Computed example of a mutant assay.
Amino acid sequence: MKRPSRAFTLLQHGLLAIMCVIAIFPLYWMIISSFKNESEIFTASFVPMQPTWSNYTYVFKEMPIVRMMFNSFSVAILMSSFQLATGLLAAYALVRWRFRGQLFIFSMLSLTWLIPFQSVMIPNYVLVNQLGMNETTLGIVLPFAVSTFAILSLYQSFKQFPKVLIEAACIDGQSDFGILTRLILPNIKSMVVSLGILQFIHGWNEYLWPMLITKKMEHAPLQIGLKLFVNSDTNMWGSLMAGTTISCLPILLLYLLLQRQIVDSFVRFGIK
């Protein structure tokens, strides 16, 4: 095979560099804007002329941002944990047992993946309101406790697991729960971790449903708290950029710590 010419390689790298700049520039502008004062916030300067920490001070003073960050972590961790737990049990049941209506149940699960959440949002809101779960983390997590995406992804992994090993474990007297936790999970743990990372990021970024459930900053995740902050102080753009920068730090640190696993997650499920 012919090797690409040097000019073509330089063109490729140049295009990639331009795309990286386009992708990173909004983040850079957000960070430098968080250090600008009110008179400088609308200028086109790429570096703050008079850097100030007043925006961050104002955010921590006027917003319970530590509490909201804890709320976001609670929502993301609980949501991903529930989805993994229900996904593992449902996928194992669909693969392990044969029962009447199995194909119908699997078809209905597949169809629910195509239904947008907005179409069932009002019934969910009425139910959560009747249960008295408004302004609670459980009220945010409960409608997302089951994920069709998680069930179908784990179903495919379970289908590829050798049935001979499962039959041998049954002969040895292992229960179904023991087969799931001691035999299958250790062999597909990388796939489960990848799925958990994706579900955690999805839970962290969830916006529409928490906006309906929470009305107070101390009960809201970070994204909803920033929206409430905008509504209360429409002209404090520097402080808003500071709050947005703080809200990005946990996911950025998570990415730096788990970079290989996160990239593997997107590649693994993107190919599927």
Rank of each mutant, 00 (worst) to 15 (best):
L11Y: 00
V120C: 09
L252S: 10
V75Y: 06
S247K: 11
T136K: 03
S194E: 12
Q223T: 15
R3V: 11
S74Q: 14
I197R: 02
P162R: 06
K159S: 02
L16D: 03
T148I: 09
I271F: 06
A169I: 04
S39I: 09
T86A: 05
M236T: 04
E206G: 05
Q12L: 12
E38A: 13
T137K: 11
L16E: 00
E40C: 10
D233P: 04
Y28V: 13
G173P: 01
G225H: 03
V146A: 00
P123T: 05
L103P: 07
T245S: 01
S110D: 11
G173W: 05
I122W: 08
Q130M: 11
G270A: 07
S72V: 04
S190K: 09
I140W: 06
S110F: 10
L180A: 06
F104Q: 11
I262D: 06
A90T: 15
N187C: 11
I251T: 05
I24K: 06
R3M: 14
L183H: 00
D264Q: 13
F161S: 01
M191R: 10
E218G: 08
A90R: 05
I41T: 06
W53L: 14
T9L: 10
G238F: 00
F144L: 11
F82P: 09
V141D: 09
M30L: 09
I32C: 01
G14Q: 09
Q50R: 14
E206M: 06
S80G: 09
V21P: 01
H219V: 02
L240E: 02
V47R: 14
M217T: 08
E40P: 04
K61Y: 03
R260V: 07
G178T: 04
S5F: 07
S45H: 08
L185M: 10
W204Y: 06
